[in-house]
């Protein structure tokens, strides 16, 4: 019986992924987010069938077992773009560094001043980086991986819907700067938008996404101590 449940939850998740991906590819609207849509489909089915969250966990563990190796694979596109990294090193390092710092500091300060519970504050800190980094950063410092992933998707959706307009309005026109801002501010979802602007914007955004993850993970311990020393 538990085996059957594992099989069911995995098939359900794969089905939800394929369906929401097909919908996204058909309409290509940034509000049709594959992660949120897929998770909503899974949650709705579990609730409708009266299956508790605990019953989903064994399947979840199997499905996410390849997330770590997949994330390590991000070194491959980074390596392929190494000449681009070297050419724009100052803008990349400074831009991604400032953006990562600002994101954590501002989100953390507002959440703290609003009196949110500690676990929620720690989950909002890594909201600008791609999910595999964000969930690990949140987990290490005592936040919730699920909440962190929701904040990441909220940030990415916001950035992919309004990011390009905001940059144009602010007079940020250089393709390298636009790509870096989209990748640092809105991770993979911003990167998808950057690729719609052009190859150079997209490549820079992809780099920025991975580097912002590394930078945020490195700075997070300091930020947690600064904001939540107790």
């Amino acid at each position: 019986m538990p085996r059957l449940m594992i099989l069911f939850t995995i098939l359900l998740t794969v089905g939800a992924y394929l369906l929401s991906k097909a919908l996204y590819l058909r309409y290509r609207h940034p509000l049709l987010n594959i992660v949120l849509l897929g998770a909503a489909l899974v949650i709705a089915t579990l609730l409708a069938l009266n299956i508790p969250y605990q019953a989903y966990l064994p399947g979840r563990r199997i499905m996410t077992s390849l997330l770590g190796p997949a994330t390590v694979g991000l070194a491959v596109p980074l390596y392929r773009q190494r000449s681009l990294v070297r050419r724009h090193a100052p803008a990349i390092v400074a831009g991604v560094g400032l953006g990562s710092l600002a994101s954590m500091l501002v989100a953390g300060l507002i959440a703290l001043m609003a009196g949110l519970p500690r676990e929620v504050v720690l989950s909002v800190l890594p909201k600008s980086v791609t999910i595999p980094f964000a969930v690990e950063i949140a987990r290490i410092h005592g936040g919730s991986p699920g909440l962190a992933s929701a904040f990441v998707v909220a940030t990415g959706t916001l950035g992919s819907v309004f990011g390009a307009t905001l940059l144009t309005w602010a007079g940020i026109r250089h393709p390298v700067a636009r790509g870096l801002a989209l990748g640092t501010g809105a991770h993979g979802q911003g990167t998808a938008m950057a690729f719609m602007e052009g190859e150079r914007e997209g490549s820079m955004a992809g780099l920025a996404m991975t580097l912002a993850g590394i930078t945020t993970a490195t700075l997070a311990p300091l930020m947690v101590r600064l904001l939540l020393r107790s």
Partner: peptide
């Protein structure tokens, strides 16, 4: 319970991240 505050934290920090990264990178380029 905390939806509004969370939305504020996310919107403000995201706008500042975009502007910070964008302006600094453009200036350096």
């Amino acid at each position: 319970r905390y939806g509004l505050m969370l939305a504020l934290a996310i919107v403000i920090s995201t706008v500042l991240t975009f502007l910070g990264t964008g302006y600094l990178a453009q200036w350096l380029q």
